[in-house]
Amino acid sequence: MEPGHAWHDMGGEAAGAVDLSTHDYALWEKRVDALMVLLSGKGHFTVDGLRRAIEDLGPEAFETMTYYERWIASVSRNMVEAGAWSTAELAAKMEEVARRGGTYGGANRV
């Protein structure tokens, strides 16, 4: 990487052909989007905060995580930084959710 040229600043880099295939968004992805819009809209964090935490994930995350996986990682981090809840509380909640097991639909309470 050139000095002063962050990984997410991709303009002008060499890359392969554009993959034109598209997908419908899954419900959980739409919910991530809605969480971002609502929680930032209520002032818990900003769009710049969303981007900053995504950029902090590093270049590898861009290849290994999907778009909304990066978003929820960033929303989650921003909410902890905003003091909405602690990392320990988040971890406990995630453990509780994971114990519900099965599929995404099955792990939802509502």
């Binding site: 997908h23 959980w28 990682a73 909410m79 809840w85 519900r100 792990a107």
Partner: peptide
């Protein structure tokens, strides 16, 4: 809409899906 679901729609619960549910429920 007649398109294939994303692969993550009907597979086992992923770490990031768990995080989405957790963040939403906490909020």
């Amino acid at each position: 809409s007649g398109h294939p679901y994303r692969p993550d729609q009907d597979t086992a619960l992923s770490y990031w899906q768990v995080m989405e549910i957790a963040v939403r429920e906490l909020a």
